[in-house]
């Protein structure tokens, strides 16, 4: 396994500790960091399947909603505590994703995006229209807090960011593993990957289901952190925003979605004018970033470091060159 696997997770651990220290004086930072963490937790798996596997999914928020609703409905109808609903919240969206993945994941990139977008909207319609079961447009309220951490913001922050760190570590470890390389091969040439014995459909379906399961976990966290879930909470606009986060941050980097999530949340907080008008500035900002840095903001950092490394490398003297290099 590459030595660099734990480096990104280490960077995030330092960031988390920094937030914990700085947040002592600015308590609103905790709430912002929790939001960033939840988005990052949805964005990192999306970054993996899109950046490495070319699976462009716009249904991540829908899977999170399925997880959140699974937990909320088990609580409201059967009075199960959050500890007992955690597993169903992960398994139900994962199974759902596995079942629907076969006909969807054979499609080319843009068709896949459209199909997952349509799937996300259908899930939203089902939740908002099944009034008796799901609470309709009003959703489900009065959900109990997350077990152990309860309503403590520091506790929730630690839980969410620990999950992000584990996710980023797994992302890096997976990418450098044989299965990760198989996923990249599938992205580069699906037919060639099949010809060398990679079970393309199974690999993609499995990964799609795992990312849906992680989304379901985020849905569970979201529902019990806020004590509420409704059809508008984790909607298709969030799915689109997640894709923005991944692309703006850098879809080829494990930290890209985290940076993208931070960019989104902080830009929303710092933009001038009313909240209604934010979309205008925000949209323009996204177009500019996509236009100027199509590989994502993190590519700027990487290219700068690469430039520094090249600049600091000593120029070899002609006497030090091998005969081949001299020629």
């Amino acid at each position: 396994m590459s030595k660099s696997v734990g480096r990104n997770a280490g960077v995030l651990t330092i960031v988390m500790l920094g937030i914990l220290i700085v947040g002592q004086g600015h308590s609103s930072l905790y709430a912002t960091a929790i939001t960033v963490g939840l988005y990052a937790l949805l964005g990192v798996p999306l970054g993996l399947i899109y950046g490495c596997g070319g699976v462009l999914s716009l249904a991540q928020a829908a899977f999170a909603a399925i997880g959140g609703y699974a937990s909320a409905l088990l609580f409201s109808h059967y009075h199960l505590p959050p500890e007992a609903t955690l597993l169903p919240a992960i398994i139900v969206p994962a199974l759902f994703a596995y079942v629907v993945s076969r006909p969807i994941l054979r499609l080319p990139e843009m068709s896949m995006a459209l199909a997952t977008l349509a799937l996300g909207l259908l899930v939203e319609v089902v939740f908002s229209s099944s009034g008796g079961l799901t609470g309709g447009y009003e959703g489900v309220t009065g959900l109990p807090p997350i077990p152990i951490v309860g309503n403590s913001r520091v506790g929730v922050l630690l839980l969410v960011w620990s999950a992000v760190i584990i996710c980023v570590y797994c992302y890096d470890a997976f990418r450098t593993s044989a299965r990760g390389r198989a996923l990249i091969a599938i992205h580069v040439d699906r037919l060639l990957a099949e010809s060398v014995g990679i079970p393309v459909a199974r690999e993609l379906s499995l990964l799609f289901a795992i990312t849906a399961g992680i989304s379901g976990f985020v849905g569970w966290l979201y529902a019990h952190y806020l004590g509420y879930i409704g059809p508008g909470s984790l909607n298709v606009h969030l799915s689109a925003n997640l894709l923005f986060m991944v692309v703006v941050g850098g879809r080829k980097y494990s930290l890209g979605p985290v940076l993208g999530a931070a960019f989104f949340v902080f830009a929303g907080d710092w933009l001038p004018g009313s909240a209604q008008a934010h979309g205008m500035v925000f949209g323009a900002l996204i177009v500019l970033v996509l236009l100027l840095v199509p590989e994502g903001l993190l590519s700027l950092v990487q290219s700068r470091f690469r430039w520094k490394r090249v600049a600091s490398r000593p120029i070899p003297q002609s006497s030090q060159l091998s005969p081949e290099q001299s020629l």
Binding site: A240, L243, F244, V247, F282, G283, A284, V287, L290, L291
Partner: peptide, 9 residues
């Protein structure tokens, strides 16, 4: 995605 951003704008 840029056309999506225009939609948001």
């Amino acid at each position: 995605l840029s056309t999506f951003a225009v939609l948001i704008m």
